[in-house]
Write a protein that binds this DNA or RNA. Structure first.
Lengths: 137, 137
DNA sequence: GTCTTATTGGGAATCGTTCCCATTATGACA
DNA sequence: TGTCATAATGGGAACGATTCCCAATAAGAC
């Protein structure tokens, strides 16, 4: 919506740590999960800070969020999310995600919304399943 | 998954009241909202019971759930949800929803999942926007 | 009418997330 | 390199939605 305005932001160890933790895996991970991992690694960081940075990443378009059916929010860094709108194919078991695109879905969504008089539209499309690895075990 | 097995279930005033409350409007409503409405109507019912029945409706395929981006779960009765898989165009402001179908999306989702070795697939497609009424105000 | 047991409901408990605010540390500037 | 303004931190309290627990209640079968 509004042009992503970069606010002055300080570089901190904690911020870097959160980003690293996310970068380490290509799966969607919850804030609690990231926090636990960092603490286990001996990182000195608070839960609030983890939430803060995760949210910042989302605001800056560096990360994507997926709200799991159980209500938990999970995050994952996304290469060039800012330029390409995309969706995810997510493993319900391990959280592993594959970025997918569906141009047809985009246009369909906009068309349907317009036909019904809806404006300021956005949509969520997530496909959940079991990845080959998890299905095998 | 497992064949929907109908369990013996008693007919109670509370159960009927919850269903009525949902049937009264074609919008997705939260458990808290339904509870408040019922109490305001002088209905004698507990919050736990509302949650319980809402969940039962979902299990029985009588209602659809949508997890709002803020994490709240909203429910709405759906005519023949059990027979026709469909999605929703939901007003972000008032919750009003229009049932929509997108056969192309279904096949696309399945195809993408299969290509990536995912099984036991399901997907969520919800379109959020502002309905004409809410946009006007 | 009686009895079995599904259902109820209110409050405690849980869980993820946000808030508050005194303390800490980054980055700009001298 | 030292000083300073203030962004960032973190720990615990606060919150809101949802679930749990369990004694009291009431539906439905006989």
């Amino acid at each position: 919506m509004a042009p992503t305005q970069q606010v002055k932001r300080r570089a901190t160890n904690q911020g870097a740590a959160v980003k690293e933790a996310l970068a380490a895996e290509d799966t969607f991970r919850s804030a609690q999960d990231v926090y636990a991992t960092l603490r286990a690694n001996g990182e000195k960081i608070g839960l609030s800070t983890v939430y803060r940075h995760l949210q910042i990443f989302v605001d800056d378009g560096l990360a994507d969020v997926i709200h799991k059916p159980d209500g938990e929010s999970t995050y994952r860094l996304c290469g060039d999310a800012s330029t390409t709108h995309h969706h995810h194919l997510v493993c319900r078991s391990c959280g592993k995600a594959v970025e997918i695109e569906g141009p047809a879905v985009e246009t369909w969504a906009d068309k349907v919304a317009a036909q019904n008089g809806f404006t300021d539209v956005n949509h969520t499309v997530e496909i959940f399943g079991l990845c080959a690895t998890c299905a095998a075990s």
